[in-house]
Design a protein around this nucleic acid. Structure first.
Lengths: 192, 192, 192, 192
DNA sequence: CATGAATGAGCTTTCATTCAT
DNA sequence: CATGAATGAAAGCTCATTCAT
């Protein structure tokens, strides 16, 4: 993959809409070319192939998530407070890149089979959150857990599923309410 | 879709492995035919097309989930106890049909665009769990929630993501441990 | 081809409509089965294959033409008068079996490649008319011709093309007017 | 349909032979590709589908007819003389493009269902000849007719049927004789 | 006699990809 | 650098036909 000129980068990012709507396999290079205005052959000049476009898109999103999460982790307060900030930050990425997020979620199977993507998912969310959970035990703000990685995965599942659902169905303004309810669920569960 | 004779049903269900491994789009009808021993034309005699095979597979899984969840809901005890049973029951479906469950999760985007599947997901898990959450408030075993549907969705996300992860990576025996940790997370969250 | 029971014969003749509308190749056995109510396998019990159905249909029509023409030829009068009767009789077959006639005309290429059909076309119209033209020279009612077969073919072309056109586009009542104009053309040409 | 480069145009026109021999439906894209040397995918790059190739072929022929007829109409003399020239010109097109003409005649049904073809047939032959017939009444060279369009259609039928017959069966040199006999038939009919 | 079930053998069409310019 | 033109390599789907009952 060659370095993309900025305008090209923007145009290709816009292809996320197409992919989110139809899935990668149902999205033809022809469609991407038509929708971005970038000729097919030019896309091939910059990308190795269709899959690399998907990888590019997903890498971008995961990098956003990574940065957002990293930022939240550096905010002050207890681990619990930072976990809350992390979840909110994650949801904000969904808010900023709704279609690309949706594409990532919907082409999950494909994504999971691309090693680079799997690694980055862990690096962006699972590992930092797992570390945070462990920290929280130490600072006393979180309870002990036998399998913190598993819990971090569960949190990832809860956040993404709910986030995508909210994005797809609900108007954006509601993201706040979603965040509040979700954070409460993650922190306190559902028991009275 | 024509009514499937029992042996055919079995053979087609076995195709889930293929799909789980490669994703529906990368799985050719040729492959399904070869792997099941059912001639391509015969598959087309029973199914309208490739997508209908996916729908059939997913419908079967979701029906298992529905039954499992329905059974758990009828077990005795408080809402909290039944929620626990529900989660365990859901994970057991993953244990019994690992590949089909994985296929469903991995072809999520495809599935989400098939209305029948979306409906059945809600009917099988989200709605019953939402109702259970509401009941739990009444019987005092669960806390109040502003958006029980959202929480039910979050639980679904946590269970499936964790379940698939456990299935894909871990040996089965561990499902018990996964269940225990997951139930604790859902019921009590992560706060100390 | 087995002998058809009368009700079957009727049903299959009705398939002419389908074939006239879409052409034989675009008409599937499935369609014929659906439209006639005769199961596909039963059609195969009576006919050797799809082409034989076409042959049956066309043979029936050509037999009607043959009979009609033969009848007209036996009517009294000069050769010119009998030629007129022949043309009118031919047009009446179009009137009685519009769709089958149209099917025959439209699947002309196919028909011409089936030897049986080619023979019968000649036997039904071209040869009798050629003979009539020769007779006409003898009885003085018709002019001499160098190539009576060629002229008979030209008459066939004029009658069928005009007849099909009239059938397809115009209401039936007009067939009289068509006949009058056509007979005048054939007998007297267009010169003043 | 994309604009065809000249060499491509030639190659595709040569496909008429194949189609004339077997009919469009029996002619596989594979065959056309093999016979023209143009890869299947390239054919699809230029044409929308198989039918569009047929349309292209027929349109070309009809355009030849149109030009030939138009030229004949502009020749000097009475309407009767120009009608004669028209028929001869029409037959010459058969002589120059025997296979394509035959294909058109044999896939008549297909052609008749393509509106573009129907229109062009009228534009190329029926309408000009009808106008000529009307003119002929005025200049006194032709008799009055109640339905000149019908007579023009009859002439078209006589010419094409006879022309195709002559092409298919007879050696070419004979076209002159065919023309002479046919012109006499159209102008003077068969009455003594 | 009739027919529901099953399938072999293709065919059209699609599309990612290439490459000369 | 960018791209219009061209194509190799499938793949989904169709349908005439068969045959056990």
């Amino acid at each position: 993959m060659r370095t993309l000129p900025a305008p090209m980068r923007e145009k290709v990012l816009a292809a996320a809409d197409l992919i989110a709507e139809h899935g990668l396999d149902a999205t033809k290079m022809e469609d991407i070319a038509a929708s971005t205005g970038v000729p097919k052959a030019t896309l091939y000049y910059y990308f190795e192939g269709k899959e690399e476009i998907l990888t590019f898109l997903f890498t971008e999103i995961l990098d956003e998530v990574r940065q957002a999460v990293a930022g939240a982790l550096q905010s002050g307060g207890t681990a619990a407070q930072r976990l809350e900030a992390t979840i909110v930050a994650h949801l904000r990425v969904f808010e900023r890149f709704p279609m690309a997020s949706r594409a990532l979620q919907f082409d999950l199977g494909r994504a999971a089979r691309i090693p680079l993507i799997a690694e980055r998912t862990d690096a962006a969310f699972v590992n930092p959150v797992r570390d945070l959970l462990v920290e929280g035990v130490l600072d006393g703000s979180l309870r002990e857990m036998d399998h913190p990685t598993l819990v971090a995965t569960a949190i990832l599942g809860a956040v993404t599923t709910t986030g995508i659902n909210a994005l797809t169905i609900q108007p954006r303004r509601q993201l706040r309410r979603v965040a509040t309810e979700l954070v409460r669920f993650v922190l306190a569960g559902v028991t009275a």
